[in-house]
Design a binder for these strands. Structure first.
Lengths: 233, 233
DNA sequence: GTAAAATTGTGTCAAAATAACACATTTAGA
DNA sequence: TCTAAATGTGTTATTTTGACACAATTTTAC
């Protein structure tokens, strides 16, 4: 039997999860109005603790599932936060993730059970601990990633129009984009498949509904390089 | 006094550090030939445990300092590794960082004290635990970062020539680059200042020695976008 | 001395990508 | 059927990129 590392401190390992959504106009965050201690009544990210016999990645999926009822959603590690005083209750190191989900496809029941609400990113409330810092960094990372990889699609429904996609990018970068250049750029990636359908929820010209070419999406994930003039990572 | 989180497991939090260097020809790693248990005699990254009263970032700096004698070197978090069985001795979550240092500027004594050696990245040995996975991911990240931000300079001496810089990029991406296009691209960033000196260690035409414009480096860090044909992140 | 070999610095040019911009089409509703 | 709003596509000048050529510098060999 191997000897254990007797001289070092065992520390609580938490996970905190930032969930981004898009309602067609604004970027949103799924935040918890805490109905439990500590910090009851305040806003926070969804979080949890790593169990003794649980892989870190499994724990992240568990927390996402408990919040959204979704499995296999896009998420990536953001950073591990480890200031000594970040949680006043007890020393806790938190591995922070962010996820992108289709805002219409998750479980309302799961969200309700966690007392979670979609909040406009721009109007986000003060949050507990270092959660504000986490969200700021996550937005930065989202902008970085979305400029290089086609992750925007993760936030849209299965079928979507180019104008919808453009509105998403405009929300992510908080800047207007040229409609014609945007369309050309996106279509040149060949990632979009024309479904033959049109968006019927339109009072004017109905835009073409596309879906993502999943195979090309996987292949081209690392060769997307979406750039427009105002977007610098 | 606040109540503690009584129902969750406390876990060892380790840090592992990948140190990259460049000897003018090849990318190198500063690896430990373990003269201590566990896994005595095997190769590993430099690591350590997070102390109870120590910020995570402070711990990373401590470990880097113990290995290199350097402070304020470039490093960034890579990922936190948390498979249950990643360390057979005991459940340990490891926050992995990577650093870029000038291979000629660190403390030989510190390295010797840790039994650390510079190893060609391409000939790297089998390492313990998930350290191989860490290094693979770090190389990927280095390539990603170096394509977008001017971090290559962190691996060079204060004064360097454009051909040296090119050799570095060729080592990072393991691909030959066109000398003329490279020079044009780098000079167009205006990040280089001509020192007026030349590289005297040359048997042929002596190349101009440049130094980095530190002010512009800070300003343009997020607007570098170094791309050449063969380099795709 | 001078020629040869290796390396460095700079220039050219066609092709591709980008940014700015214009016009025609579709649809609901007046 | 006319209008307003939104969508789809095209044009053009400018900038960036990639492929390539030539001149200059320096040491070494003769």
């Amino acid at each position: 039997m191997l000897e254990k590392y007797n001289h070092s401190a065992r520390i609580l390992v938490a996970l905190d999860c930032i969930v981004f959504g898009f309602d067609g106009e604004e970027l949103k965050l799924l935040l918890i109005k805490r109905n439990f201690e500590p910090q009851l009544g305040k806003w926070s990210l969804m979080g949890g603790f790593l169990n003794e016999t649980e892989d870190l990645e499994v724990a992240a999926n568990r927390i996402l599932y408990d919040l959204t009822g979704l499995q296999d959603v896009y998420f990536e590690e953001l950073k591990t936060f480890g200031r000594v005083d970040r949680d006043p209750v007890e020393r806790t190191v938190s591995v922070c993730f962010f996820a992108l989900i289709n805002i219409h496809a998750h479980s309302q029941d799961a969200a309700k059970a966690q007392n979670a609400f979609w909040i406009n990113l721009k109007n986000r409330p003060e949050m507990i601990f270092d959660h504000n810092e986490m969200v700021n960094l996550a937005l930065e990372r989202l902008r970085y990633r979305a400029a290089l990889h086609p992750i925007g699609f993760e936030l849209l429904p299965e079928k979507f129009t180019i104008p919808q996609l453009q509105k998403l990018y405009e929300a992510i970068y908080d800047t207007p984009l040229d409609r014609r250049n945007f369309s050309r750029k996106i279509l040149s990636t060949k990632l979009l498949i024309d479904t033959g359908e049109k968006n019927e929820n339109s009072a004017t010209k109905k835009a073409i509904l596309y879906r993502l070419d999943q195979q090309k999406y996987q292949q081209q994930f690392n060769a997307f390089h979406y750039f427009v003039s105002d977007i610098r990572v």
